[in-house]
Design a protein around this nucleic acid. Structure first.
Length: 864
RNA sequence: GCGGACAUGGUGGAAUUGGUAUACACAACAGACUUAAAAUCUGUCGAGCCUAGCUCAUCCGGGUUCAAGUCCCGGUGUCCGCACCA
C-alpha cells in the first residue's frame, strides 16, 4: 500500500541517487556500432550565485528531449558546464574583498547542488568550467592556431571604452552609447587590440543560414541583417574646387550607381578625414561636427532629429556629365562606419536625400520613368520614388531596367581611367565588422603572446601553455591587476630570450562560450577537441536558450566552428543543427500607492478581470497591480526555485513551467498555477495507488478497447509533440488520458490489466517531464526496471483505425448534425447517406442541393 | 522611420495547416462529504434569445471560397530587433 500523500522530497532524493549509481545518463565515449547519437544542449549558465526560474525552464525543456530521445533508443549526450569568466566575479571581488576564483567556484558549487535537485538527466562526468586551467589552456592553443592561420590579428582601433568597468566593449555591447553592463557613457579611445577575422566568413555565414532548417526564421533574419550584405559600386569623384584639403577626390560606396544622372550633391560624415581636415581652420565646421556627435546613435532617435548639413563650398566633378559640379556637404545622417563614409545624394530616389535636398534647396533630378512611358520621368515632390521602372534622362542608361543599368554604369566607370586607375568598380559590402576580443580584465583567458622590444609580438611557445592566471592579485584600484603584477608580466622573449612583457589583455568571455559545445564531446582530450569524438556528436541536434543570444553568441559560435575547421580542430562548420529560443519566466508586479514594490507572498487577491484586486494582507491597503515582467530582484517579483522545490518538489516545478505556455512564449508564474500542477501530481499518485490495489478483473471488451484507443491516440500525439517541443500540447494529451483512466478506474467495466497497461503508458509519457514521480509510480505498479532506462512504448496503429467514423454535416457551411458511416465508404456513398438524414431532408424541403462537398474522413457540406 | 512577430472566454492557451472554434488547464460559482475547514468528488462556466432549438462571436473593415481563427487587401493595438546601411 502506497502512503497517503506523495512525498516529493524523499522520492526525488531516492531516484536521483539511483540514477546516479546506475550511471544512467553518462554518454558512452564509444557509442555502440550503428546506434544513432543525439546531442541536446542548453546554453550553459553563468555562475552568478543561484539558479533562477529561467534556468529551471531552460533545463527542464532540454531534459524532456534528452530523456525522450534516450527512451527512443538514441545514445544521448546531455552535458552541463559553466560559463565562468567575466566581470561580475571581479565586481564582487572589488565589493566584497573576495577573490574572483573563490567567488566563482563557490557559486558553481551552490548552483550545481541546485541543478542536481531538479533531477536533470545530465552527464555530470563531462562537467567543466571555462575558468578551469585545463579549458582555457586549450583555448590558448586555439588562439595560437588562429593567429598562425591569419584569423587572429592586431590592429589599432578606436574602441568603445567603458570608464566604469575600465574595459573595452564590442560594438555589440554598446547600447545607446552606454556600456551594456555598467550603463556608463562610453568613450572613444585609440588602442591596439586583438581581433578575430569574422569578416573572412561574411558571405559563408550569410549563405549558410539557408541550410539551418531547424532554426527559427526570426533568428536567421536577425543574423542576416547583422551581416548586412549590400551589392553596389565604389565610385571616385575628383575635386573641382578642393581648397583646404589635401585629398584629390571623394570615394563613395553606392548600391544605386544606376541613378548617377540624378546626383545632386555629395555628403560626407562628420568623422570623414576630409571633414576633419577642413575643420582645422573653420570654427563653424568644428561647431557643426560637435553638434553631429551630440545626436543619439539609435535609428529611432536620429530619425526624429532634423537632417542637417554644412556646405563646405567645395565641389566635385560628375563622372558622366562634362562640366557638371556637385556641392560637397558634411551631413549628420552619414555614418563613417559603413562604406566609405561618403555618399552621392540622389534626391529623387532616396527619401533621406530628398529631405536634405529640400532643406538646402539642392537639385532634385528624377531619372526613373514608368516603362510604358519611358521618356517621362516620375514626378517627385515630397516623396522619393524608390519603385521599379526604366532609366530616363540618363544618356547611355536610358530605357534600361535597374539591374542592367547598374551593370552598365559599373562597366562604364570601370573603363574611365582617372589618375591611372578606373573611376569605379563593382563592390560588395558587409556591415559585419571583425570581432575585437581584447579585454583589459583579470578574470578571463590570458592571450598567449609576448611583446618583445626587438622581435615585436611573439606567440608563446606551445610547450609553455597554459599561461596561467596568477592567484595573487588585488582589486583595490580600478584597471587590470595583470598590468601591475611584475613577476607574471615580466618574462623572457620566447624568440630571442631577452627581457620582454607578457600580453596582459585577456579574451572576451564570448570566446569561452564559442566552442564549449565541441569540448563536451571529449572534455579530457589533450588537444582542444578530440576531432573524432566531436565529429560523432556534432552538430548539436537541439540547442536551447534565450532569444537574447540570437546574434552575438550564435554568430560567434558559427564563426568559431569555421575557424576551427580551418585549423583542423573540427569537421563541421555549423555547430547547431536545431535551435530553439525559449520564452522567459515572468510574474506580475505589485506596488503600494507610494511606489514600494511588494512581494506576491504578502498579498491577498480577490475578484477577476477588471475587478481583480490585490490587498496587502498586513494593512489592508489596496495595491497597484503592475505589468507582468521578467523576474528581477529590483521588482520583488522573484520566485526562488529552491523554495518551490522544497515546498512542492522538482517535478511540480518542472510540470508547471512546461505545461502552462508554449515553450517559445513567456510563461506567467502564478501560485495558483503551481498549486494546480501539484494537485495533478497528487491525483496521479492516488490513481496509481487505486489501480495497483485493484483485484484482478476482466472487464468487458468494449470498455477495454475504448480505453486502449484513447491511450494509443494520446501516445501517437505525444510522440509528435515532444520532438516538436510542443510540451504544453503534450501535457493536454496526458491530462485527457489520465481523466479517461480515472473514470474507467471507478467502475469494474475495464479490466485491471488494461488499467495497469494504459497507466504504464501514461507514466512513460510523463517520465521525461516528471521523472521522479513517474519512476516511483512505475515501481508501485510493479515494474522492476527503471522507467528512465525503459524504451518508449510503441503506438499500436491498429487501435487508431476506426471501422465507423462520425462526420460533421454542414448545411451551407454551418454545422447542423452528424453522420455515422463506415470509414471506408466512398464519396458517393457518403453523399447518398447524407441526403437521407432528417435534418437535411427538412432543410432541402424537396429541392435538390446545388452541391454536396464530401471531404473524406473530415466533413460533409450540403449547399442548397 | 525601417524590418519582423503576434492579437481566440475572467486567465494561460488548443484547433490535425482551409474542414465540428474554444481541446486541456487555471480561476470562479453551485452541490456532496465534514461539527467546521482543508483535501477530495459531482456539476455549471463565450454572449444573447422566442431555449427539443436559433442567432451572434477568434482585434476592426472588406474580399476569395461550398467552407476562413487559418489565405488576400486595408486599418488598429501590443511586443521584439535596428548600425539613417547609401
Amino acid at each position: 500500500m502506497a502512503s497517503e500523500r506523495y512525498n516529493a522530497k524523499t522520492v526525488e532524493n531516492k531516484w536521483q541517487q539511483r540514477w546516479n549509481d546506475a550511471k544512467l545518463f553518462e554518454a558512452q565515449t564509444q557509442p555502440a556500432e550503428g546506434r544513432e547519437t543525439y546531442y541536446v544542449l542548453e546554453m550553459f549558465p553563468y555562475p552568478s550565485g543561484r539558479i533562477h526560474m529561467g534556468h529551471v525552464r531552460n533545463y527542464a525543456m532540454g531534459d524532456v528531449i534528452a530523456r525522450y530521445k534516450r527512451a527512443k533508443g538514441y545514445e544521448v549526450l546531455h552535458p552541463m558546464g559553466w560559463d565562468a569568466f567575466g566581470m561580475p566575479a571581479e565586481n564582487a571581488a572589488m565589493k566584497n574583498k573576495t577573490h574572483p576564483k573563490g567567488w566563482t567556484y563557490d557559486n558553481i558549487a551552490t548552483m550545481r547542488t541546485q541543478l542536481k535537485s531538479m533531477g536533470l538527466s545530465l552527464d555530470w562526468s563531462r562537467e567543466f568550467a571555462t575558468c578551469d586551467v585545463d579549458y582555457y589552456a586549450k583555448q590558448q592553443k586555439l588562439f595560437l592556431d588562429f593567429l598562425d592561420a591569419g584569423l587572429a590579428y592586431r590592429k589599432n582601433a578606436t574602441v568603445n571604452w567603458d570608464p566604469v568597468d575600465m574595459t573595452v566593449l564590442a560594438n555589440e555591447q554598446v547600447i545607446d552609447g552606454k556600456g551594456w553592463r555598467s550603463g556608463a557613457e562610453v568613450e572613444q579611445r585609440e588602442l591596439t587590440q586583438w581581433f578575430f577575422k569574422i569578416s573572412e566568413f561574411s558571405e559563408d555565414l550569410l549563405e549558410s543560414l539557408d541550410t539551418l532548417k531547424d532554426w527559427p526564421a526570426k533568428v536567421k533574419l536577425m543574423q542576416a541583417n547583422w551581416i548586412g550584405k549590400s551589392v553596389g559600386a565604389r565610385v571616385r569623384f575628383p575635386f573641382v574646387k578642393g581648397e583646404g584639403t589635401t585629398a584629390t577626390e571623394i570615394e563613395v560606396f553606392t548600391t544605386r550607381p544606376d541613378t548617377l544622372y540624378g546626383a545632386g550633391f555629395m555628403a560626407i560624415a562628420a568623422e570623414h578625414p576630409i571633414a576633419q581636415e577642413l575643420a582645422k581652420d573653420n570654427q563653424r565646421l568644428i561647431t557643426f561636427i560637435k553638434e553631429c556627435r551630440k545626436l543619439g546613435t539609435t535609428a529611432a532617435a536620429i530619425d526624429k532629429a532634423e537632417k542637417l548639413g554644412f556646405d563646405t563650398g567645395l565641389t566635385v566633378a560628375h563622372p558622366f556629365i562634362e562640366g557638371r559640379e556637385l556641392p560637397v556637404y558634411v551631413a549628420n545622417f552619414i555614418l563613417m562606419g559603413y562604406g566609405t563614409g561618403a555618399v552621392f545624394g540622389c534626391a529623387a530616389h532616396d527619401q533621406r536625400d530628398l529631405d536634405f535636398a529640400r532643406k538646402y534647396d539642392l537639385d532634385v533630378i528624377s531619372v526613373i520613368a514608368d516603362s510604358k512611358t519611358p521618356e517621362v520621368a516620375m514626378p517627385v515632390e515630397d516623396i522619393a520614388y524608390v519603385g521599379d521602372g526604366v532609366l530616363t534622362s540618363s544618356e547611355f542608361l536610358n530605357g534600361l531596367t535597374k539591374d542592367s543599368a547598374i551593370a552598365t554604369a559599373i562597366e562604364k566607370l570601370n573603363g574611365q581611367i582617372l589618375d591611372g586607375k578606373p573611376q569605379g568598380a563593382g563592390e560588395t559590402n558587409y556591415k559585419l565588422r571583425d570581432w575585437g576580443v581584447s579585454r583589459q580584465r583579470y578574470w578571463g583567458c590570458p592571450i598567449p603572446v609576448v611583446h618583445c622590444n626587438d622581435c615585436g609580438v611573439i606567440p608563446e611557445k606551445e610547450e609553455n601553455l597554459p599561461i596561467e592566471l596568477p592567484d595573487d592579485v588585488t582589486f583595490d584600484v580600478p584597471g587590470n591587476p595583470l598590468d601591475r603584477h611584475p613577476t607574471w608580466r615580466d618574462v623572457d622573449c620566447p624568440s630571442c630570450g631577452k627581457p620582454a612583457k607578457r600580453e596582459t589583455d585577456t579574451m572576451d568571455t564570448f570566446v569561452d562560450s564559442s566552442w564549449y559545445f565541441a569540448r563536451f564531446a571529449d572534455p579530457t582530450a589533450e588537444t582542444p577537441t578530440n576531432v573524432e569524438a566531436a565529429s560523432r556528436w556534432l552538430p548539436v541536434d537541439q540547442y536551447i536558450g534565450g532569444i537574447e543570444h540570437a546574434i552575438l553568441h550564435l554568430l560567434y559560435s558559427r564563426f568559431f566552428a569555421r575557424a576551427m575547421q580551418a585549423t583542423g580542430h573540427l569537421e563541421v562548420k555549423e555547430p547547431f543543427k536545431g535551435l530553439f529560443t525559449q520564452g522567459m519566466v515572468v510574474h506580475e508586479t505589485y506596488r503600494t500607492k507610494t511606489g514600494t514594490w511588494i512581494t506576491p507572498a504578502e498579498i491577498d487577491f480577490s475578484g477577476e478581470g477588471e475587478n481583480r484586486k490585490a490587498i496587502l494582507a498586513e494593512t489592508g491597503e489596496e495595491l497597484i497591480i503592475g505589468n507582468i515582467e521578467k523576474m528581477s530582484k529590483s521588482k520583488y517579483n522573484i520566485v526562488d526555485p529552491d523554495d518551490i522545490i522544497a515546498t512542492y518538489g522538482a517535478d511540480t516545478a518542472r510540470w508547471f513551467v512546461l505545461s502552462d505556455s508554449p515553450p517559445d512564449r513567456d510563461v506567467i508564474w502564478s501560485e495558483a498555477g503551481v498549486d494546480g500542477a501539484h494537485r495533478f501530481v497528487q491525483r496521479l499518485w492516488r490513481l496509481v495507488d487505486t489501480v495497483s490495489e485493484k483485484k484482478t478483473t476482466n472487464g468487458d471488451d468494449a470498455a477495454n478497447t475504448a480505453l486502449l484507443k484513447i491511450a494509443h491516440k494520446a501516445l501517437s500525439n505525444v510522440d509528435v509533440m515532444i520532438p516538436g517541443l510542443r510540451y504544453n500540447s503534450a501535457v493536454a494529451q496526458i491530462y485527457t488520458l489520465v481523466n479517461a483512466i480515472d473514470q474507467a478506474a471507478k467502475s469494474d467495466k475495464t479490466s485491471s490489466d488494461t488499467l495497469r497497461h494504459t497507466l504504464s503508458i501514461t507514466l512513460q509519457m510523463i517520465a521525461p517531464m516528471m521523472p521522479h514521480l513517474a519512476e516511483e509510480c512505475w515501481h508501485v505498479l510493479g515494474h522492476v526496471t527503471m522507467i528512465s532506462a525503459s524504451p518508449w512504448p510503441e503506438t499500436d496503429k491498429s487501435l487508431l483505425e476506426e471501422s465507423t467514423i462520425t462526420l460533421p454535416v454542414q448545411i451551407n457551411g454551418k454545422k447542423r448534425g452528424d453522420l455515422e458511416v463506415a470509414a471506408d465508404l466512398d464519396k458517393s456513398g457518403v453523399e447518398e447517406e447524407v441526403l437521407k438524414l432528417d435534418f437535411v431532408q427538412a432543410a432541402l424541403s424537396g429541392k435538390t442541393p446545388k452541391k454536396v462537398v464530401v471531404v473524406p474522413g473530415r466533413i460533409v457540406n450540403v449547399v442548397i
